[in-house]
Nucleic acid binder design. Structure first.
Lengths: 197, 197
DNA sequence: TTTCAAATGTGATGTAGATCACCTATTTGC
DNA sequence: GCAAATAGGTGATCTACATCACATTTGAAA
């Protein structure tokens, strides 16, 4: 159960639980291993779970008319992801989630999540706080699209998550920034982050 | 207490409360009236409250190097707003909130909000669900910036909130869409929504 | 009602970034 | 280890939108 350590620490940053509560909560997670390129949620799927990343990198993305890919989120170790639109509205997936690298993931069904939130007040608080953070991050991203050009967005991303430079193919970074891979290539040929990170 | 009706209905769409719980919750709100152009939160302020709009329209915005305005959100009747970054991180306001028209607003201090969330589990659930919705809306906005051009974003906004066409000056709509007022003017001269809405 | 400021419309011009075309690394599967 | 696929780089060209400049309309204050 060593794998759960990262999740335990993540939770305890926000709320204090008894060992019993924590154990009960953790008992509802399932552990899964995925290979690079493996799909976790495909557009049109019924969406039942949230996912917590233990290791590896996922991407949450949308494909426009079968051509262009738009990345909504990279999910890194310690991050949650899912198609929240589908999950909260109980509709089919409109986005995809797959693996950028081999990954270990914990899944929690939305049914269990709601059940445990109802049973344990502190867990409900934990998820309120978690969503608060996601909301703030998303607002910041909106602002970065409005106020900055591609170069600014690229530099901000590299500053915040320098590890992406080595792990994630450049065209995926372009798809996250909302810029063509050609333009991104021209941008960072003048501005390389520290490759040793 | 008639003014509170809109808030009561808003809450009861998500959770069921006893009359006692509901009354206790509502007793923590303060009612305020503001005039057009009046400022509710100014950049640099200490932020203490969330605001629930009863009537009128607010805007939440950011000003870049004292020149360009970027609108993060229009707050309409039945909507919540604040500087959530400042509120959750307990930092000074980095954005502004003011009134597009005369407005009636209920305010709830973050201290009271957290207190009541701890006291009444169902209120914590209400705020979790509310933030979930905000998060989804924000993600949709990110996608609209990535996938659509200015015209698409304008049409989507007018379809969703046609009332904005009459109530909100065009330059503010431009500042929300992330487009210059000149470009917006050129766009909608070819595409007017129904003015009778 | 008049007046002044703010909002809006519109032409001319400049520019970031898209797209297309093609070439050169790197991976990945056999 | 080799072939094929995938990722990445770079020039040429095109386009949506910004910016500047100025005219016109609207709306609020006096």
């Amino acid at each position: 159960m060593d794998k759960l350590e990262i999740l335990k620490q993540h939770i305890s940053r926000y709320v204090t639980l008894t060992d019993e509560e924590l154990g009960y909560f953790l008992s509802h997670f399932k552990e899964n291993s995925y290979k690079k390129n493996q799909v976790i949620i495909r557009e049109g799927d019924r969406v039942e779970n949230e996912y917590f990343v233990l290791s590896g990198y996922l991407k949450t993305f949308f494909i426009n008319e079968e051509t262009k890919m738009y990345i909504l989120q990279f999910a890194m170790p310690g991050w949650w992801t899912s198609d929240y639109v589908a999950l909260y509205n109980n509709t089919r997936a409109t986005i995809n989630v797959d693996c950028i690298s081999d990954a270990e993931v914990l899944s929690l069904s939305n049914t269990d999540l709601e059940k445990i939130c109802a049973e344990i007040h502190a867990i409900e608080r934990f998820f309120r706080w978690r969503t608060n953070r996601g909301y703030i991050a998303s607002q910041k991203r909106v602002l970065s699209f409005m106020t900055g050009d591609a170069k600014k967005r690229y530099e901000d991303l590299m500053q915040l998550y320098p590890q992406l430079y080595n792990v994630v193919p450049k065209q995926l970074i372009a798809a996250y920034l909302g810029v063509s891979r050609e333009t991104l290539s021209r941008l960072y040929s003048h501005h390389k982050p520290n490759k040793n990170v």
